[in-house]
Design a binder for these strands. Structure first.
Lengths: 189, 189, 189, 189
DNA sequence: TATGAATGAGCCTTCATTCAT
DNA sequence: CATGAATGAAGGCTCATTCAT
């Protein structure tokens, strides 16, 4: 018999996870501005539960994407170590980043929206993803593989924007365009 | 007494134009989702007048941008004729397109949003801008100046997305990234 | 045939008056914190109409009571002129003020609540009723009829509080207690 | 092993007392309508504990004030015995009552609100404080010190109302106005 | 045709209350 | 007994849209 408190905590965690899953799905369908009620309904909980766990919408958005952001961040040094060249590492990392973005419809738009209240998420990116990307860019620059003047932040914003998909501009298109952008970053021989 | 009907028509046209000017200004400030009332107020008309002239928001958005879209469209053959190479023409035309997008806050986002109800605008682009762009791309392809597999529509969507600006990603950033994307389109020598 | 605009204005005024009447009634029943929807329902209008005419609750509360406040204010100089003594004038004026308060259940409580957002009403009293009362108090002081140290504002707040009626403490009780308070203000011979 | 049941009871009593102390503090800060959660948080208990001990808000309010009400009640005969005159005793008792009211932000308003659900508290006053006050009033009446027609209940309601403080009408004002009211109760020589 | 008052659906947010652990 | 997660009713506010004048 597990102690009651632990059981309750586990249940709460499950609820929280359910909300996150529901929010993730709803964000894909409707974007990050989706009504709280829709998320609650999809999660099978009351709206109060959402507000209890995520007082602001930004808290919810951030929580939804935090895990993937962290995973993506951790990938950078790993790819740099195992790739033949820094540019190859950058290419692969961007592939992963794009993968992350295109499967999360609405995040790119959210990031680009300048919506106050999404500063948390913005900060999270600035604090983790941007430095990770910068590491790769610096390595490329050291090898003279990319043209100068491209900052990690701007590149990621651009990639984020390119990953805003819709009818007639799907995931494959986004990936192709990002690849083209990267090609354009490469220093001409 | 000069034909009253004509006078009335002229007045109606003036009203319509005033609404378009107001909408254009408000769209720049608040995006294409701005409250109808704000536009009406700015135009000095009642909301009913807006609804009479532009039953749906998409009608209004489309009308606002139609002139610029047409101008942009007409530019393509002209640039193709007077430029040294098709790629140069493409570059210049894209510059003009970007200029159009970045000065119209919210249009890029609107185009990329997949928002049903903006299909009119979408259709307008498909019908005019895309063919214009395709002409340039075809000319480039004929000269073997760009890599194959890039469609006019996808390229324009990508450019549209890159032009979604915000805090920390401004017009200059957008222009630089679009230039980089174009560079990536170029066939490596 | 009256010009259309005038008709519309008249209708709008009627709506506005209806809202005020409904609000007045609802305030009596539920106090000034009554739900906006209740007022709208009672007035037979949509909530939007309330917000259109009275953007904040304070605007509505103030409008409801403004006329009576003004009437009460105007009474002061009149009573002073026609009464045998300043204290008599004060007594009569307070009677009128009490009459105003007790028939508007909830205003006394509202005044005493310190509720931010009711500052308008508070200001209205400060600007009109308090000076009116002060005139009477000054006249009494000049005649040595009241003890010193009683300010118009404090006296009115006290009276306002005494007029917060309820079960077992009705209008007659309030009037009696106010009279007693006034008696206590009188300078002992 | 000392009787476990007694220990448990003592613990329960401590919990109850903690809730009362917390509620008392929160009532002073926010009034008797303060959110239950705030009280629970301040007491360091769960909201369920509050509901277990005090099923209704009135139960809690009543319990919070019962001790002070009882103290105040007991004061009446004592003051009557040791004061020079009944009216002096009344004055002193009212001072104590006012002291009780003004330091308990919101009680006066609560008493005067007619809020159903506060009937318990109301009843408590009727059953204890009112008779205590009546004793003093009767003694005054016997000595011909006050004008007739003033009931203990009405007087206490009036005093309660006068003690509803706020910005610009503070504790000192309330005390002064209550003193004035009492002066008005006194039979003119 | 133009107007803008009126409508009400829809979203956000708070908080009293319940109940499984 | 105590806990606090979950619920959902209630109320505030906005704004797209209609329609009588």
């Amino acid at each position: 018999m597990p102690e009651p408190v632990g059981v309750r905590r586990a249940q709460a965690q499950r609820t929280r996870d359910g909300v996150l899953a529901a929010a993730s799905a709803v964000f894909v369908e409707q974007g990050v501005q989706a009504p709280v009620r829709d998320i609650a309904e999809r999660a099978g909980v009351g709206v109060g539960t959402i507000y209890r766990n995520f007082p602001t919408r930004a808290d919810l958005v951030t929580a939804v994407y935090r895990h993937q952001i962290d995973t993506c961040t951790a990938l950078a040094p790993q790819l740099l170590a195992e790739s033949a060249s820094p540019f190859t590492a950058l290419t692969r990392w961007v592939d992963a980043f794009v993968e992350f973005l295109v499967t999360k419809h609405g995040l790119g738009a959210a990031l680009g929206s300048g919506d106050p209240g999404l500063e948390n998420l913005h900060a999270l990116m600035l604090d983790t993803l941007v430095p990770a990307c910068a590491t790769l860019l610096d390595a490329c620059a050291a090898d003279d593989e990319i043209r100068p003047g491209i900052t990690a932040y701007t590149l990621m914003r651009a990639i984020g924007n390119l990953c805003i998909t819709g009818p007639d501009y799907d995931q494959a298109d986004a990936q192709r365009m990002v690849a083209t952008l990267l090609a354009g970053c490469r220093r001409p021989a």
